[in-house]
Simulated assay, not measured.
Amino acid sequence: MVDKSEKFSQLVRVGYFSRAILYSVVGLIALTSAGKIAAGTDGAFRAIEDFPAGSLVLWLMVVGLSAYGLFRLASFAFDIENQGADTVGWAKRIGHAGSGIGHFALAYAAFEFATTEGSSGQDSAQAAASGLLSMEFGGLVLGLLGLAFFLAALDQAKKGITGNFMHRILSGAPRYTRQLGTVGYLARTIVFAIIGWSLVNAGMMSGGSEQVLTLGDAVATLAGNGAVFTLVAIGMIAFGLLSLILARYRCIPDLDPEGRIPSFRA
Protein backbone atom coordinates (compact mmCIF):
# COMPACT_ATOMS: atom_id res chain seq x y z
CA MET A 1 0.00 0.00 0.00
CA VAL A 2 1.35 3.43 -0.96
CA ASP A 3 1.40 5.76 2.07
CA LYS A 4 0.60 9.48 2.04
CA SER A 5 4.25 10.48 1.85
CA GLU A 6 4.85 8.34 -1.22
CA LYS A 7 1.70 9.68 -2.91
CA PHE A 8 2.83 13.23 -2.21
CA SER A 9 6.29 12.52 -3.62
CA GLN A 10 4.85 10.95 -6.78
CA LEU A 11 2.54 13.90 -7.36
CA VAL A 12 5.38 16.41 -7.02
CA ARG A 13 7.49 14.35 -9.44
CA VAL A 14 4.66 14.48 -11.97
CA GLY A 15 4.82 18.25 -11.50
CA TYR A 16 8.52 18.31 -12.37
CA PHE A 17 7.86 16.09 -15.39
CA SER A 18 5.10 18.44 -16.60
CA ARG A 19 7.43 21.39 -16.15
CA ALA A 20 10.05 19.55 -18.21
CA ILE A 21 7.62 19.20 -21.13
CA LEU A 22 6.51 22.82 -20.99
CA TYR A 23 9.96 24.41 -20.83
CA SER A 24 11.39 22.11 -23.50
CA VAL A 25 8.53 22.86 -25.89
CA VAL A 26 8.79 26.63 -25.30
CA GLY A 27 12.52 26.51 -26.01
CA LEU A 28 12.18 24.36 -29.11
CA ILE A 29 9.42 26.55 -30.54
CA ALA A 30 11.52 29.66 -29.91
CA LEU A 31 14.45 28.15 -31.80
CA THR A 32 12.51 26.66 -34.69
CA SER A 33 9.31 28.66 -35.25
CA ALA A 34 9.20 32.42 -34.84
CA GLY A 35 5.53 32.46 -35.83
CA LYS A 36 4.48 30.06 -33.08
CA ILE A 37 6.54 31.66 -30.32
CA ALA A 38 4.84 34.97 -31.14
CA ALA A 39 1.71 33.30 -29.71
CA GLY A 40 3.58 32.88 -26.42
CA THR A 41 2.39 30.18 -24.01
CA ASP A 42 -0.63 29.46 -26.21
CA GLY A 43 1.77 28.53 -29.01
CA ALA A 44 3.46 26.01 -26.73
CA PHE A 45 0.16 24.41 -25.73
CA ARG A 46 -0.95 24.27 -29.37
CA ALA A 47 2.25 22.40 -30.18
CA ILE A 48 1.61 19.97 -27.31
CA GLU A 49 -1.97 19.53 -28.52
CA ASP A 50 -0.56 18.32 -31.85
CA PHE A 51 1.57 15.64 -30.17
CA PRO A 52 0.49 12.00 -30.45
CA ALA A 53 -1.93 11.60 -27.52
CA GLY A 54 -1.68 15.38 -27.12
CA SER A 55 -4.91 15.64 -25.12
CA LEU A 56 -3.62 13.08 -22.63
CA VAL A 57 -0.35 15.03 -22.31
CA LEU A 58 -2.31 18.23 -21.69
CA TRP A 59 -4.32 16.58 -18.90
CA LEU A 60 -1.08 15.27 -17.39
CA MET A 61 0.19 18.86 -17.42
CA VAL A 62 -2.99 20.15 -15.78
CA VAL A 63 -2.45 17.75 -12.88
CA GLY A 64 1.33 18.14 -12.79
CA LEU A 65 1.50 21.93 -13.00
CA SER A 66 -1.24 22.22 -10.36
CA ALA A 67 0.69 19.82 -8.11
CA TYR A 68 3.88 21.81 -8.58
CA GLY A 69 1.98 25.03 -7.84
CA LEU A 70 0.68 23.52 -4.58
CA PHE A 71 4.19 22.36 -3.69
CA ARG A 72 5.53 25.91 -4.10
CA LEU A 73 2.65 27.52 -2.20
CA ALA A 74 3.19 25.02 0.63
CA SER A 75 6.85 26.03 0.64
CA PHE A 76 5.75 29.64 1.13
CA ALA A 77 3.05 29.03 3.73
CA PHE A 78 4.50 26.16 5.77
CA ASP A 79 8.25 26.37 5.01
CA ILE A 80 8.30 22.69 4.04
CA GLU A 81 11.84 23.02 2.68
CA ASN A 82 13.16 24.73 5.80
CA GLN A 83 14.15 28.04 4.18
CA GLY A 84 13.77 29.79 7.53
CA ALA A 85 11.99 32.93 8.75
CA ASP A 86 14.84 35.43 8.42
CA THR A 87 14.99 38.01 5.62
CA VAL A 88 16.68 35.68 3.14
CA GLY A 89 14.33 32.81 4.00
CA TRP A 90 11.21 34.92 3.54
CA ALA A 91 12.55 36.32 0.25
CA LYS A 92 12.91 32.76 -1.06
CA ARG A 93 9.50 31.77 0.26
CA ILE A 94 7.82 34.81 -1.34
CA GLY A 95 9.55 33.88 -4.58
CA HIS A 96 8.10 30.38 -4.24
CA ALA A 97 4.66 31.92 -3.82
CA GLY A 98 5.06 33.79 -7.11
CA SER A 99 6.23 30.61 -8.80
CA GLY A 100 3.26 28.70 -7.37
CA ILE A 101 0.72 31.23 -8.64
CA GLY A 102 2.45 31.32 -12.02
CA HIS A 103 2.24 27.54 -12.35
CA PHE A 104 -1.45 27.60 -11.44
CA ALA A 105 -1.97 30.06 -14.30
CA LEU A 106 -0.13 27.68 -16.63
CA ALA A 107 -2.19 24.74 -15.36
CA TYR A 108 -5.40 26.67 -16.09
CA ALA A 109 -4.18 27.48 -19.60
CA ALA A 110 -3.44 23.78 -20.15
CA PHE A 111 -6.94 22.99 -18.84
CA GLU A 112 -8.47 25.35 -21.41
CA PHE A 113 -6.65 23.57 -24.21
CA ALA A 114 -7.53 20.13 -22.82
CA THR A 115 -11.25 20.91 -22.63
CA THR A 116 -11.73 22.99 -25.79
CA GLU A 117 -10.25 23.29 -29.25
CA GLY A 118 -7.74 25.74 -27.84
CA SER A 119 -7.62 29.00 -26.01
CA SER A 120 -9.87 31.69 -27.32
CA GLY A 121 -10.23 35.33 -26.47
CA GLN A 122 -8.22 36.96 -23.72
CA ASP A 123 -5.23 35.12 -22.27
CA SER A 124 -6.22 33.42 -19.00
CA ALA A 125 -3.52 35.24 -16.99
CA GLN A 126 -4.63 38.56 -18.46
CA ALA A 127 -8.26 37.74 -17.73
CA ALA A 128 -7.38 36.98 -14.10
CA ALA A 129 -5.38 40.21 -13.89
CA SER A 130 -8.30 42.16 -15.35
CA GLY A 131 -10.62 40.76 -12.68
CA LEU A 132 -8.09 41.59 -9.97
CA LEU A 133 -7.65 45.15 -11.23
CA SER A 134 -11.40 45.69 -10.97
CA MET A 135 -11.17 45.10 -7.21
CA GLU A 136 -10.04 47.54 -4.56
CA PHE A 137 -6.29 47.26 -4.00
CA GLY A 138 -6.12 44.84 -6.95
CA GLY A 139 -3.34 46.86 -8.53
CA LEU A 140 -1.32 46.63 -5.33
CA VAL A 141 -1.78 42.86 -5.23
CA LEU A 142 -0.53 42.57 -8.82
CA GLY A 143 2.43 44.78 -7.98
CA LEU A 144 3.30 42.64 -4.97
CA LEU A 145 3.06 39.52 -7.12
CA GLY A 146 5.47 41.20 -9.51
CA LEU A 147 7.81 41.76 -6.56
CA ALA A 148 7.55 38.05 -5.76
CA PHE A 149 8.70 37.27 -9.29
CA PHE A 150 11.64 39.66 -8.96
CA LEU A 151 12.66 37.88 -5.76
CA ALA A 152 12.25 34.55 -7.52
CA ALA A 153 14.46 35.84 -10.34
CA LEU A 154 17.20 36.71 -7.85
CA ASP A 155 16.91 33.23 -6.35
CA GLN A 156 17.17 31.68 -9.83
CA ALA A 157 20.33 33.71 -10.50
CA LYS A 158 21.87 32.59 -7.22
CA LYS A 159 21.08 28.94 -7.99
CA GLY A 160 22.58 29.23 -11.46
CA ILE A 161 25.78 30.94 -10.28
CA THR A 162 26.44 29.00 -7.06
CA GLY A 163 24.97 25.63 -8.03
CA ASN A 164 23.36 25.33 -4.59
CA PHE A 165 20.36 23.57 -6.17
CA MET A 166 22.58 20.46 -6.27
CA HIS A 167 22.22 20.17 -2.47
CA ARG A 168 18.70 18.85 -2.94
CA ILE A 169 19.39 16.39 -5.72
CA LEU A 170 19.90 12.75 -4.82
CA SER A 171 23.09 10.90 -5.69
CA GLY A 172 23.04 9.14 -9.04
CA ALA A 173 21.94 12.17 -11.05
CA PRO A 174 23.78 12.62 -14.40
CA ARG A 175 27.17 14.32 -14.07
CA TYR A 176 26.09 17.18 -16.38
CA THR A 177 23.20 18.18 -14.09
CA ARG A 178 25.15 21.12 -12.66
CA GLN A 179 25.88 22.55 -16.13
CA LEU A 180 22.27 22.18 -17.27
CA GLY A 181 21.16 23.96 -14.11
CA THR A 182 23.53 26.87 -14.62
CA VAL A 183 22.27 27.53 -18.15
CA GLY A 184 18.62 26.87 -17.27
CA TYR A 185 18.44 28.92 -14.09
CA LEU A 186 20.18 31.93 -15.63
CA ALA A 187 17.75 31.89 -18.57
CA ARG A 188 14.87 31.57 -16.11
CA THR A 189 16.22 34.60 -14.24
CA ILE A 190 15.64 36.74 -17.33
CA VAL A 191 12.17 35.31 -17.96
CA PHE A 192 11.05 35.76 -14.34
CA ALA A 193 12.31 39.35 -14.34
CA ILE A 194 10.27 40.08 -17.49
CA ILE A 195 7.14 38.53 -15.95
CA GLY A 196 7.72 40.49 -12.74
CA TRP A 197 8.03 43.77 -14.63
CA SER A 198 4.85 43.02 -16.58
CA LEU A 199 2.93 42.55 -13.31
CA VAL A 200 4.33 45.73 -11.74
CA ASN A 201 3.57 47.64 -14.94
CA ALA A 202 0.00 46.33 -15.03
CA GLY A 203 -0.71 46.82 -11.35
CA MET A 204 1.13 49.97 -10.32
CA MET A 205 1.89 51.90 -13.50
CA SER A 206 -1.52 51.82 -15.23
CA GLY A 207 -0.25 49.49 -17.92
CA GLY A 208 -3.48 47.48 -17.93
CA SER A 209 -4.08 43.73 -17.71
CA GLU A 210 -3.00 43.22 -21.34
CA GLN A 211 0.58 43.87 -20.17
CA VAL A 212 0.65 40.72 -18.01
CA LEU A 213 2.91 38.02 -19.45
CA THR A 214 3.28 34.31 -18.79
CA LEU A 215 6.23 32.02 -19.61
CA GLY A 216 5.98 31.79 -23.38
CA ASP A 217 4.87 35.42 -23.70
CA ALA A 218 7.97 36.56 -21.80
CA VAL A 219 10.26 34.57 -24.11
CA ALA A 220 8.43 35.98 -27.14
CA THR A 221 9.19 39.56 -26.06
CA LEU A 222 12.90 38.81 -26.64
CA ALA A 223 12.39 37.71 -30.25
CA GLY A 224 13.98 40.88 -31.64
CA ASN A 225 17.07 40.62 -29.46
CA GLY A 226 19.17 38.22 -31.51
CA ALA A 227 21.74 36.40 -29.40
CA VAL A 228 19.89 37.06 -26.12
CA PHE A 229 16.74 35.44 -27.52
CA THR A 230 18.71 32.43 -28.78
CA LEU A 231 20.52 31.97 -25.47
CA VAL A 232 17.28 32.21 -23.48
CA ALA A 233 15.63 29.68 -25.82
CA ILE A 234 18.55 27.28 -25.31
CA GLY A 235 18.27 27.95 -21.57
CA MET A 236 14.59 26.99 -21.64
CA ILE A 237 15.50 23.65 -23.20
CA ALA A 238 18.28 23.17 -20.64
CA PHE A 239 15.84 23.91 -17.83
CA GLY A 240 13.37 21.44 -19.32
CA LEU A 241 16.07 18.74 -19.30
CA LEU A 242 17.01 19.69 -15.74
CA SER A 243 13.35 19.38 -14.71
CA LEU A 244 13.29 15.89 -16.23
CA ILE A 245 16.27 14.96 -14.06
CA LEU A 246 14.59 16.52 -11.00
CA ALA A 247 11.48 14.44 -11.65
CA ARG A 248 13.63 11.43 -10.85
CA TYR A 249 16.33 12.71 -8.50
CA ARG A 250 14.86 15.70 -6.58
CA CYS A 251 14.78 15.14 -2.83
CA ILE A 252 11.11 15.65 -1.87
CA PRO A 253 10.15 16.45 1.76
CA ASP A 254 8.53 13.49 3.53
CA LEU A 255 5.11 13.51 5.13
CA ASP A 256 4.75 12.33 8.70
CA PRO A 257 2.19 9.60 9.60
CA GLU A 258 -0.55 12.22 9.98
CA GLY A 259 0.00 13.42 6.40
CA ARG A 260 1.80 16.61 7.40
CA ILE A 261 5.28 17.70 6.36
CA PRO A 262 8.03 17.84 8.99
CA SER A 263 11.30 19.71 8.58
CA PHE A 264 13.13 19.18 5.32
CA ARG A 265 15.40 16.13 5.23
CA ALA A 266 18.17 16.11 2.63
Results as ranks from 00 to 15, higher is better:
2 V>C: 00
5 S>G: 13
5 S>C: 03
7 K>E: 14
8 F>V: 04
10 Q>A: 14
22 L>H: 07
23 Y>E: 09
24 S>G: 13
25 V>G: 09
26 V>A: 04
28 L>E: 03
30 A>D: 10
31 L>Q: 04
31 L>S: 02
35 G>E: 15
36 K>Q: 15
40 G>I: 05
50 D>A: 15
51 F>V: 06
52 P>R: 06
54 G>Y: 09
55 S>T: 14
55 S>M: 12
58 L>A: 09
59 W>D: 01
61 M>L: 10
62 V>K: 02
68 Y>W: 10
68 Y>F: 15
68 Y>E: 05
68 Y>D: 01
70 L>A: 12
74 A>Q: 12
76 F>S: 06
78 F>L: 15
80 I>Q: 04
80 I>P: 05
84 G>T: 08
85 A>W: 09
85 A>Q: 11
96 H>Q: 14
98 G>Q: 06
99 S>T: 14
102 G>D: 09
105 A>F: 14
106 L>E: 11
107 A>W: 03
107 A>M: 01
107 A>S: 14
114 A>Q: 11
115 T>H: 11
117 E>H: 14
119 S>M: 14
119 S>A: 15
120 S>V: 00
120 S>I: 06
121 G>R: 08
126 Q>F: 02
127 A>Y: 13
132 L>T: 12
132 L>K: 08
132 L>I: 11
132 L>F: 09
134 S>E: 15
139 G>E: 02
140 L>R: 03
147 L>N: 01
148 A>L: 08
149 F>S: 06
153 A>T: 10
153 A>K: 03
155 D>K: 09
156 Q>L: 11
159 K>R: 15
160 G>W: 00
164 N>E: 14
167 H>T: 11
168 R>V: 14
168 R>A: 10
171 S>H: 12
172 G>L: 08
172 G>A: 03
173 A>C: 05
173 A>M: 01
179 Q>M: 14
181 G>I: 10
182 T>D: 05
182 T>N: 07
183 V>F: 02
188 R>Y: 05
190 I>S: 01
192 F>K: 10
197 W>M: 03
198 S>D: 04
201 N>P: 09
202 A>M: 07
203 G>N: 00
203 G>W: 08
207 G>I: 00
208 G>L: 00
208 G>A: 08
209 S>G: 00
210 E>V: 03
211 Q>K: 13
212 V>S: 10
219 V>K: 01
219 V>L: 10
220 A>D: 06
221 T>C: 06
221 T>F: 07
222 L>G: 05
225 N>R: 13
226 G>N: 11
227 A>I: 15
228 V>E: 08
228 V>D: 09
230 T>N: 11
237 I>C: 12
237 I>R: 04
239 F>D: 10
239 F>T: 03
241 L>D: 03
243 S>I: 09
246 L>F: 01
247 A>M: 12
252 I>M: 02
253 P>M: 00
258 E>H: 13
262 P>W: 07
262 P>L: 00
